[in-house]
């Protein structure tokens, strides 16, 4: 079939081109990203629904600030985290560009920068979670806050949603580290550009989710 016959690269190895004429791994990752879009939409939607439904109740008790992280932390930290993740998307795409032009020192620099920025984001989120927990926001539907029983799913939906995002970032950092060492060890491998492209797609998606969370949860 022509899809495979002309798909051989310079090293004579065929990429995993399927009957649709595209790389199967890349198609699989895009399908995964599509399913992840639905997954995070479910989490964000659930959070927004419960936020709206409990907001009036807590406002009546004078406890509205209790369920609003931006009132605890301001949006300073979240803005910094958004900037960090956005910068990491830029360094990721620069790493991919360096891979395609076989500029390995540049590739190593930009991928390491992405790893560092991703790790900084995770640490920032750990700090935020710790701070919120000590301020009284809990991963429970009912708890006691300053002597008063609070019934709110805000803490649950907030921690689950942002926690899953943080988990994705953490797994992305692990994947980036694996790709870094793989490319360093097998610099001549023809698979390298696709390996970097795949982790890049995942990383940009993680950034995309934060774009949505930053707007819908922290700014609105």
């Amino acid at each position: 079939m022509s899809a495979t016959s002309h798909a051989h690269d310079e090293a004579g190895q065929a990429p995993l081109v399927g009957s649709l004429g595209v790389d199967s791994r890349k198609l699989g990752l895009w399908a995964f990203i599509g399913s992840e879009t639905l997954f995070f939409t479910a989490l964000i939607t659930t959070h927004l629904i419960f936020y709206a439904r409990t907001k009036a109740d807590l406002a009546a008790k004078g406890m509205l600030e209790h369920m609003d992280p931006k009132l605890y932390l301001g949006i300073d930290l979240t803005t910094i985290l958004a900037a960090i993740l956005l910068a990491s998307s830029l360094t990721m795409v620069l790493a991919l560009a360096a891979t395609k032009s076989k500029e390995w020192p540049k590739f190593r620099f930009w991928l390491l920068a992405t790893i560092v920025l991703g790790s900084a984001f995770v640490l920032g989120q750990v700090y935020e979670f710790t701070h919120l927990y000590h301020e009284g926001l809990k991963l429970a539907p009912q708890y006691v806050y300053e002597g008063e029983t609070v019934k709110s799913l805000f803490g649950v939906t907030f921690f689950v949603m942002t926690g899953f995002h943080g988990l994705h970032v953490t797994l992305g950092v692990v994947w980036l580290i694996a790709v870094y060492f793989k490319v360093r060890r097998f610099a001549a491998s023809p698979e390298n550009p696709m390996d970097v492209e795949l982790v890049g797609l995942y990383w940009h998606f993680v950034d995309l989710v934060w774009v949505a969370i930053f707007t819908l949860v922290y700014l609105i």
């Binding site: 079939m1 022509s2 002309h6 798909a7 081109v17 004429g21 595209v22």
Partner: peptide, 8 residues
């Protein structure tokens, strides 16, 4: 084949 070539 044409389809595959286009997508590639």
């Amino acid at each position: 084949a044409e389809h595959a070539t286009h997508d590639q």
